[in-house]
């Protein structure tokens, strides 16, 4: 997807945020770009936009999304990450990501890979042939490889890497520190009592 500043309003438009569930968002990923008619929850028989990149035959089964800088900017809606994953993406490669979106990816198991502008440009060039580009993204070694190019390394903080690899229960992990939280809370309450129990 050769665009910069792809915002979460595009990834999943607001009319789909009315759902109280966590599933069913994949069908409406990039709804306003993927379809010519206006989408609503549950609407079927949609008119596909043949121009839109994800509708090209060779990208139909894509699992890696390649995009330009500042991907995922805008609203904090986690629905954007759910939609990307439920559509079938496992990884997004871009030169940079918006902060909240990046965290939402880590919390849901979608791998955000930041490569340099030049590396991303190289990958875009490589997608211009008729065949789908086959790339492999290895989180263990933190490398992306495709074609005959030499592997490109990406960085990710060790904590996020571990969470993605092991799929841990975030809340469970924090609750292991419950004693620490409780003792912090006691001391915080003494220092700033006005922050506690002041509901009118």
């Amino acid at each position: 997807m050769d665009r910069a500043n792809v915002d979460t309003d595009q990834i999943i438009p607001k009319q789909f945020l009315k759902s109280v569930k966590k599933t069913g968002f994949g069908d409406n990923l990039f709804d306003a770009w993927r379809f010519l008619d206006e989408g609503e929850i549950g609407k079927t028989n949609r008119q596909e936009n043949p121009e839109f990149v994800l509708n090209h035959m060779r990208y139909r089964d894509a699992t890696v999304l390649l995009a330009r800088r500042n991907f995922g900017c805008g609203s904090s809606r986690e629905h954007a990450v759910w939609a990307l994953m439920q559509y079938g993406f496992r990884c997004v490669i871009a030169p940079s990501f918006a902060d909240i979106f990046y965290n939402n990816c880590i919390n849901n198991g979608l791998l955000p890979v930041a490569l340099s502008e030049a590396e991303v440009e190289g990958m875009f060039k490589a997608t211009s042939s008729d065949d789908p580009l086959v790339a492999s993204v290895d989180l263990e070694t933190q490398q992306v490889t495709y074609g005959i190019s030499s592997p490109m390394s990406f960085s990710i903080d060790p904590g996020s890497r571990k969470r993605l690899l092991e799929g841990m229960d975030e809340i469970g992990l924090t609750l292991r520190e419950a004693d620490k939280i409780r003792s912090f809370e006691r001391q915080h309450r003494m220092a700033m009592p006005w922050l506690f129990n002041n509901n009118p």
């Binding site: 904090s76 909240i100 965290n103 849901n108 809340i171 924090t174 609750l175 939280i181």
Partner: peptide, 21 residues
């Protein structure tokens, strides 16, 4: 601003997992 997983996390733990900016 936080995502929905973090809303759940804050409800359950009163903490946010955060990197200093």
């Amino acid at each position: 601003g936080i995502g929905t997983s973090e809303v759940e996390h804050v409800l359950a733990t009163q903490c946010l997992v955060q990197q200093k900016s």
